[in-house]
């Protein structure tokens, strides 16, 4: 039984089509990453599952209940993007309040609140008003409230937004611990490096359409390109390989060999071994998630959520890449 399942899920905000026929499945215990530029529809998808956004078409189920029904939400934690906690609360009283709404018994609330705030490093300031918190503290409080009632599924919408690198690593550790505890995590992000490190599976949304989905390993696998390294001081027989139809190019200390369809890497290895060369390094080259992302997602015009006209100017395109696609300009 999947924890989250959508089938042909579509959502229109008046004339904007935020989601179009999105189908995905998230199994128990997975960390699932939803990637996409700003405005791709990631938040919309999560809001539909949680019943914050209504009137959608298709099918969406959360914990085996139709999305939007209150009972499923009891077992769900949620960190919205751009969240704003009522600032007349302190961290402790906020957890008390949300805990009450979530149906956590009073004794349990008393016990868990300092515990969870300790985990995110807010224990000392737990009785201060939220309005005195820094952005990073608010984000950590956001995570604390999402985990407070020990939910089975946790939705994190841009959890590392505005968090410094150390904070990001802490958040990653928390997610790892949750995964160990068998929780399912649904992560929205446009920070690809992060997603790559933590997620089991990802989907890429573009303009509300899902254009890629799969295991990180499968997606980033770059079929047919290998990196080979020889023992120090040995010459790489480039010309000899070329005679056999293998093209080798130098990549720093390693050599990259692209293999055409129907060919295998084994003959290359045999050849090298046959010449008495020592192979020290052999891997199938992976592309980073970023490479994949940039290759699949049409670049956005700077300053625009939705990709507009194709960018003609190569210079602007390069600029967009160096900024990181999807990041706010």
């Amino acid at each position: 039984m999947p924890v989250i399942e959508t089938r042909d899920l579509s959502k229109n905000y008046r004339r904007i089509q935020a989601l179009k026929d999105v189908s995905l499945r998230v199994e128990k215990g997975e960390i699932y990453g939803l990637l996409g530029q700003n405005g791709a529809g990631k938040t919309t998808l999560v809001k539909i599952l949680l019943g914050i956004t209504r009137n959608w078409q298709g099918e969406a189920r959360l914990l085996d209940v139709t999305a939007g029904r209150a009972e499923a939400r009891r077992r769900v934690g949620y960190l919205p993007e751009d969240h704003r906690f009522p600032d007349y609360h302190s961290a402790a009283s906020l957890l008390e309040f949300y805990g009450g709404l979530l149906g956590v018994p009073r004794v349990e609330r008393r016990r868990r609140s300092p515990e969870i705030l300790e985990t995110v490093g807010l224990r000392e300031r737990m009785h201060y008003k939220i309005r005195t918190y820094s952005k990073g503290m608010k984000q950590r409080l956001g995570i604390a409230q999402a985990l407070f009632h020990d939910p089975e599924v946790i939705f994190l919408d841009e959890p590392t937004d505005g968090v410094d690198p150390i904070g990001r690593r802490e958040i990653r550790h928390i997610m790892e611990r949750l995964k160990e505890a068998g929780k399912t995590i649904f992560l929205n992000s446009h920070l690809l490096g992060e997603v790559e490190k933590i997620c089991d599976r990802v989907a890429i949304l573009q303009k509300g359409v899902m254009i890629q989905e799969g295991d990180i390993a499968t997606l980033t696998e770059h079929k047919g390109t290998f990196l080979i390294g020889l023992a120090a001081g040995q010459m790489f027989p480039v010309e000899e390989l070329a005679k056999h139809g293998y093209q080798a190019t130098r990549r720093d200390d390693l050599w990259e060999i692209a293999i055409a369809d129907g060919q295998e890497i084994d003959p290359v290895v045999d050849l090298l071994r046959g010449k008495g060369l020592g192979i020290r390094h052999l891997v199938e080259k992976r592309q980073s998630l970023e490479d994949l992302f940039l290759a699949t997602v049409a670049p956005a015009e700077p300053g625009v959520d939705r990709p507009g006209k194709r960018l003609r100017d190569d210079r602007i395109q390069r600029e967009a890449r160096s900024r990181g696609i999807g990041e706010k300009p």
């Binding site: 939400r73 949620y78 919205p80 751009d82 969240h83 704003r84 949300y98 709404l101």
Partner: peptide
Amino acid sequence: KGTVDLLLAKP
């Protein structure tokens, strides 16, 4: 925005 989401996500 940002406050109501938190409440609506509660059961």
